[in-house]
Design a protein around this nucleic acid. Structure first.
Length: 272
DNA sequence: AAAGTTGCCTGCAAGC
DNA sequence: TGCTTGCAGGCAACTT
């Protein structure tokens, strides 16, 4: 999403802002539209699952997409096929830039939210996050210390944004499958060798997914309205009852519920 | 009916 | 015994 949005926003001035409702999951900050209006976007960053737009006012506009949030840029790829969901339904924020683009934020379930961060002030949401999985501070050593002494299932530990930031349900399932580790394994028993495999798998899965433009389930879409393609590369996610994709494994993908979320895995090859 | 997220609340279990 | 901590589970937000 950041990659798709950056060409439209970075360096652009926000010359019109319309906020269509007072809240998403949480209320918008006070005078939210007023604090965006007239500002120039100096940079667009991502930290974990947060999108961060730096403004020339010194504030940073933070967005979390929740489950169904998306940004749309007008005039691009209107789509020649019928969509399951009208992309212009549930538009909660519309912004016009001095480059003539209209950027819209839509979120049917409204689990997303936005905040404004003061430049130097602490940002509690960001400060509690673990290292970026694609950055230099993530690896087997990090997992070893974060998992030490814990009995929680490795699936739950990887979803914990304080352990490593930015992994969601899909990518945790896929990474555990690639690393051949059972999602139920108490994370504290994992040793160096398996954690090396896991760290490698986490990075490989994320890199492949980003290169494919993300994963489109139901209504997720990139900034230009297109779909991601990584869902076609899923090895286990959403594949309950189908044969394991790792030959010569003859396992059948199973689905269980952990911490209230679906876990898909192969009981045969994810055994150690 | 279940869905990709997070936060808050409850209650249980273990450890000190 | 009683306090703290970790963590699982349930629920809430909402629409398709």
């Amino acid at each position: 999403m950041r990659l798709g949005l950056a060409p439209h926003l970075v360096g652009a001035r926000l010359i019109a802002v319309r906020q269509n409702r007072p809240d998403l999951r949480f209320p918008f900050p006070p005078d939210f539209a007023g604090r965006l209006l007239g500002r120039r976007v100096t940079g667009l960053r991502r930290r974990a699952k947060y999108l961060l737009a730096d403004l020339d006012s010194g504030e940073t506009w933070l967005t979390h997409l929740g489950m169904t949030g998306r940004f749309l840029v007008q005039g691009l790829a209107p789509g020649r096929f019928a969509r399951p969901v009208d992309p212009l339904a549930h538009v909660h924020l519309e912004i016009e830039t001095d480059r003539g683009a209209v950027v819209r934020f839509a979120d049917p379930r409204r689990f997303g939210f936005m905040e404004l961060l003061a430049g130097a002030a602490a940002a509690p949401r960001l400060d509690a996050l673990g290292p970026e999985p694609l950055g230099p501070d993530f690896g087997a050593a990090r997992l070893l210390s974060a998992f030490a002494g814990s009995r929680r299932p490795v699936k739950a530990a990887l979803l914990d944004q304080g352990v490593v930031a930015g992994l969601g349900n899909i990518y945790v399932c896929e990474a555990l499958h690639q690393a051949r580790i059972s999602p139920m394994t108490p994370c504290g028993v994992l040793g160096r060798a398996r954690l090396e495999r896991l760290a490698l798998a986490v990075r490989a899965v994320l890199e492949a997914a980003i290169a494919a433009g993300g994963s489109t389930l139901r209504d997720f879409a990139g900034a230009e309205g297109g779909q991601g393609y990584f869902q076609h590369a899923f090895q286990v996610y959403g594949r309950e009852g189908e044969p394991c994709a790792r030959p010569p494994c003859r396992g059948v993908v199973a689905r269980i519920v952990q911490s209230g979320r679906s876990t898909f895995y192969c009981p045969v090859c994810q055994n150690r």
